[in-house]
Amino acid sequence: MRDPGIALDEAAPDTRARAVEVRLTQMGLGLARRFGDGVGGRLADRVLRVLSDRHPRAFTALRDMPEAHLLIDPVDAPAAVLLRVGPRLALRVCDRDGPAHVAVDAAVRGPCARLLDLLEGRIDGDALFFRRELVIEGDTALILALRNTLDGEDMDLFADMATAAGPLRHALPLARRHAGRMLDLLGIARRAAPPPLRWGMVALERRLGGKPQGS
């Protein structure tokens, strides 16, 4: 009935831009984790609200699902996220073992770049399972449902966040346009920066991470 395949590389965004996005995602997760449940939780709520407003079909479908918890674990990032589907749809940053008090129904673990592909529906539904770089645990149907639902959208996490109101509006398109340079600069700056500059970079990371300002 269904047949294996692999994802189409041509469907992936510019690899340099993706590398920036991966870096930003890793930073965002790290920051949200450090901020703790209060601020980090507000950040996650914000991401979910923006995506939900922009993709009502998919998010209605996710709310129509029976309640279940899906752990999405980017193994190359400092933290994981827990997605609760169902009427009480929610997103939370957590440890990669999942929150202690929640029974996780399914987990998908893999490099950040692959998981962004998953979120944006860039990985083919079947192909998801063939890449050994993604590890799938627990309820396979839950993961497939999420993948299929997201594939029905033309979702682009960073573009969506960028066009939404907030501090990312200007930072992200710029980051994308200058993806290559940005990546190099971040890398060089991180390695070479003297302490005061490093402090400045934390501020930049904060801005890019979308920490709510006075909201």
């Binding site: 269904r2 860039r122 990985i123 083919d124 539904g125 079947d126 299929n148």
Partner: peptide, 12 residues
């Protein structure tokens, strides 16, 4: 064939 396949696959 492939209603279960992603839009990227279908387009290609």
């Amino acid at each position: 064939e492939g209603r279960q396949r992603g839009k990227a696959y279908i387009a290609a």
